[in-house]
Design a protein around this nucleic acid. Structure first.
Lengths: 236, 236
DNA sequence: CGGCCGATTGATGGCCCTCAATAGGTGTGG
DNA sequence: CCACACCTATTGAGGGCCATCAATCGGCCG
């Protein structure tokens, strides 16, 4: 993996932080970015109770964030794909409150937060964009809130698939066919369902010719039907 | 209602935006704040699809935010008490995506967002604080995520009560006894439950001597037992 | 090859939603 | 001022969705 790819060489810049920075200031942003070694599957980017000092832009691969409650059970709080920013929930506390773990081999750009704040003081569009990013997270969480409080298990799974599809498309990839980076367990946990339920729903969707599934490979065959169940915006 | 109370006269300043601004700069913040007439119960502060141009600090009373899905049903997404900021989910879209409605007579301070952004460019601590506020919303939403996905109906109600109690305390009021600003319907909707379930749980808590309830008046009698069920941090 | 984890499928049961009826509370208009 | 309407809240009975328990299969890695 090339550790030295700068933002203006990066294929993700149209959807990542650089989109908020004028070309002649991009070098400034570039200078505060730190590109580390790739994370292997299962490796942590940060853990709850770690000092918060940076947010991270996903460059390749995928991560999940999860919290562990006092009773010890895990709650997956989000999935992060290339071009998305992870770690923003730690800003207010100086400590991370969730864990971030690689679902597959992943590379990230580390953005030291205090330097991002400094830079935002000088680049208004960057400040604005970052406010917008956080606002987006809040909105996505509100969508999820509705999903969990009102929608059936079918709707929840459908919504997640549509969300992932939209995010694929945003990166210029197929919105119909893609590979799920996460396990059935993670999907179930995220959506507040039992693994068995998720499995049964995948099978049922397949029988209805709504979806084609083979392990983690999926293809959306009937987008309308899927939309007809739950709706979830573009998220993140 | 005094429409002209400035931030430095306001009893909420220790927990509101002014806490991030040095005394000698407070006047600047004060100048961009706009204090409108009080909202009556049921009146809207803003509606989904309104242009987003400001966020609002609650000064007195209480509000709820809610979204309406395509199928027409309502989802309460949050409750906002004095000292809290409402409207941050609209930042990224230039339009509000939820509705904000007064649960009882309420007054708010309107903060035009572009002027807040300008001011944040000159007051780093204000920018930092605002990042922190948004981060807090994200964290609270993650707590809620766990609540809705893993916890029983009892736990959900207990968590909401504890959250409200903590927020009362933050304002220097009793953490044990207070008045619920929202109806059973709003509670049920927010927590993803049926009204009847909420009602039954209140009754059961009362029988167990965990809680005393009379309409919207509540008193927490046994905080330990309530904590023993669901846990939810301080939120917002 | 053997062990382990992820995934699927079936059977059973429980939590909470739905439907229904009633009481209390509030505001309005006569 | 009271009566009526309407909305909120409570309580009971029944049913459905999904969790839980259990067994099996396939894939992956050691």
């Amino acid at each position: 993996m090339t550790r030295s790819v700068s933002c203006n060489q990066c294929s993700l810049s149209p959807i990542c932080l650089p989109l908020a920075v004028a070309p002649d200031q991009l070098e400034e942003l570039d200078r505060i970015m730190q590109r580390g070694r790739p994370l292997k599957r299962g490796e942590h980017l940060f853990r709850a109770a770690d000092d918060f000092h940076a947010v991270y832009a996903v460059r390749s691969g995928a991560l999940k964030t999860y919290a562990v409650s006092d009773d010890g059970d895990e709650q997956v709080t989000g999935f992060y794909l290339p071009g998305e920013i992870v770690g923003m929930d730690g800003i207010s506390t100086a400590r991370h409150l969730s864990n971030a773990k690689a679902l597959e081999t992943a590379t990230v750009c580390e953005i030291p937060f205090h330097r991002l704040e400094d830079l935002s003081q000088r680049i208004p569009s960057l400040q604005h964009h970052f406010f917008g990013l956080m606002s987006n997270e809040i909105r996505a969480d509100r969508e999820l809130h509705m999903l969990l409080s009102k929608k059936s298990a079918d709707d929840r799974v459908a919504s997640l698939l549509l969300s992932l599809a939209a995010r694929q498309q945003r990166r210029g990839l197929s919105a119909k066919r893609f590979r799920l980076p996460m396990s059935r367990y993670d999907i179930a946990n995220y959506l507040g369902l039992a693994v068995e339920t998720v499995s049964r729903i995948f099978t049922r969707f397949q029988q209805q010719k709504t979806l084609w599934v083979d392990g983690r490979e999926v293809e959306i065959l009937d987008r309308e039907t899927l939309c007809g169940s739950g709706r979830l915006g573009v998220e993140a």
